[in-house]
Design a protein around this nucleic acid. Structure first.
Length: 421
RNA sequence: GGUCAGGUGGCUGAGUGGUUGAAAGCGCCGGAUUCGAAAUCCGGUAUAGGGGCAACUCUAUCGCGGGUUCGAAUCCCGCCCUGACUGCCA
């Protein structure tokens, strides 16, 4: 959660940062609540002090056998308890209100994030590879996959509805091969391979920022939610802990399914595998000291880029503008891969520096020195979204007859197979 | 899932209703002693928050959340976790 002391000291800093995301000034409401809370808290604590003092005297009075004095003190305590009960309830309500308010506010954009209202204002910073010229009209990945008989939306819909798919045979293996390639590359960069829980408590999602505001994007069971990204599980590995400085940066990677309700995206990307309720992703997370975060951010971007380079898939990197930044992010790079059938670049990875936003929400700290525990900074990114990478491979490596050339780097992972179909 | 036993400060561990925020030991920090060190001795050693210019003071915290009580680490309820036994099952 935000540092209330910092808000008290420099409210303008917060309001102007939030304004860049299009929010109205928030600190007047926050500070008003904060003032009431502190005043009430002081009164409650004074009443508690009176109660504690009288209670101790009761023990002493009873020890002397002074029953009258004990009775008088009991009445005094009863009065104090009344005050505590009334003001305590009031205090609790005020605190809940403030916490709800703070929990619903997004992270502050980093100073150097470009200004903008939405996607169209993102800034392209890298372009790699040339989109291939096809001598024929390139097909969409789902047409290719269905024609090969290895991508089956219809059967998946019978058991699970829309936005689900069944991959068969070589395409299923391709999915596994891509994930294996990515894990091998990322573990080679010092990310520890991890197999975390896919079902997590609300508190974990609150820590990373999906809750309380974005509950409708999640799937849940009676007591758990399904992770929408392994960022949740990996980042929460440091929840409520104090790390030694020498273990930082702590780099983690995991290949997991991700589950998203896609509540807000009705009608978008309804065809094909671009937007599914369930998809695989290799996630990268770094837990680090504040002064390491910027460097880690760049490193993680490189780690993700290298996968596309290894696969020889054309891509570009854009820096998200203030209006397109995710809830928990201070700064984000998106990697977009070229899709020939759409003649456009589509997001395949998103790499964010969250600063101490998540660390505060989950109370994750490190020892900056003797008796100096500070919040860690957290970063996360896809390295890469496996399903979308599969889409990109199919479309970019398709041949006129509908067969697919397997990228060289994947051939060993495919057991020597060089083409599909 | 069931039954039983547990969860106390950095660690070990005492404490079953009243100056116990918590004995004792270990560890750690400072000092004395020493040429220096070991040993010994003395002192200090949790976190978060409120009030105060400050010295300082108050509140909360003995897994977490409620409750009983004038007063709870101690009693009651729920939950979480650990161990043992046990059930079902990939």
């Amino acid at each position: 959660m935000f540092d209330i002391k910092a808000i008290r000291e420099k409210p303008d800093r917060f309001d102007s940062a939030w304004a860049r995301r299009g929010l109205d000034p928030q600190t007047p409401r926050i500070l008003e609540r904060d003032a009431v809370i502190r005043k009430t808290k002081t009164m409650v604590q004074e009443a508690e002090a009176a109660r504690n003092k009288a209670s101790k005297q009761i023990g002493a009075a009873m020890g002397r056998g002074d029953a009258d004095e004990a009775e008088r003190l009991k009445a005094e305590v009863a009065g104090a308890k009344n005050v505590i009960a009334v003001l305590g309830t009031q205090l609790e309500t005020e605190e809940d209100t403030l916490n709800a308010l703070l929990a619903g506010l997004p992270n502050l954009p980093a100073d150097d994030v470009p200004e903008g209202a939405g996607e169209e204002d993102n800034v392209e910073i890298v372009k790699w590879g040339e989109p291939k010229e096809f001598s024929f009209e390139p097909k969409a990945h789902d047409d290719l996959g269905e024609a090969l008989g290895l991508m089956d939306f219809e059967t998946a819909a019978k058991m699970s509805g829309s936005r689900f798919v069944i991959l068969r045979g070589a395409l299923s293996r391709l999915d596994r091969a891509l994930a294996a390639l990515m894990l091998d590359m990322q573990t080679g960069e010092g990310f520890e391979e991890t197999s975390p829980p896919l079902l997590v408590w609300p508190i974990a999602l609150h820590g990373t920022g999906q809750l309380p505001k974005f509950a409708e994007d999640l799937y849940g069971t009676q007591e758990h939610f399904l992770i929408p990204t392994a960022e949740v599980s990996l980042t929460n590995t440091v929840r409520e802990s104090i790390l030694d400085a020498n273990v930082l940066p702590k780099r983690l990677t995991a290949h997991t399914p991700c589950f998203r309700s896609e509540a807000g995206s009705a009608g978008r990307d309804t065809k094909g595998m671009i937007r599914q309720h369930q998809f695989n992703k290799v996630e990268l997370v770094s837990i680090c000291a504040p002064d390491q975060a910027e460097e880690e951010h760049k490193t993680m971007l490189c780690c993700a880029e290298r996968v596309l380079q290894a696969l020889k898939l054309p891509y570009r990197v854009v820096e998200l503008c203030t209006g397109d930044l995710g809830f928990g992010a201070q700064k984000t790079y998106d990697i977009e891969v070229w899709l020939p059938s759409q003649r456009t670049y589509r997001e395949i990875s998103s790499i964010s520096n969250c600063g101490d936003f998540q660390a505060r929400r989950m109370n994750a700290r490190y020892k900056a020195g003797e008796k100096d525990n500070r919040f860690v900074h957290t970063l996360n990114g896809s390295g890469l979204a496996v399903g979308r990478t599969l889409v990109a491979v199919l479309e970019n490596y398709q041949r006129e007859d509908g067969s697919i050339t397997i990228p060289d780097v994947l051939v060993p992972y495919m057991g020597g197979m060089e083409t599909i179909g």
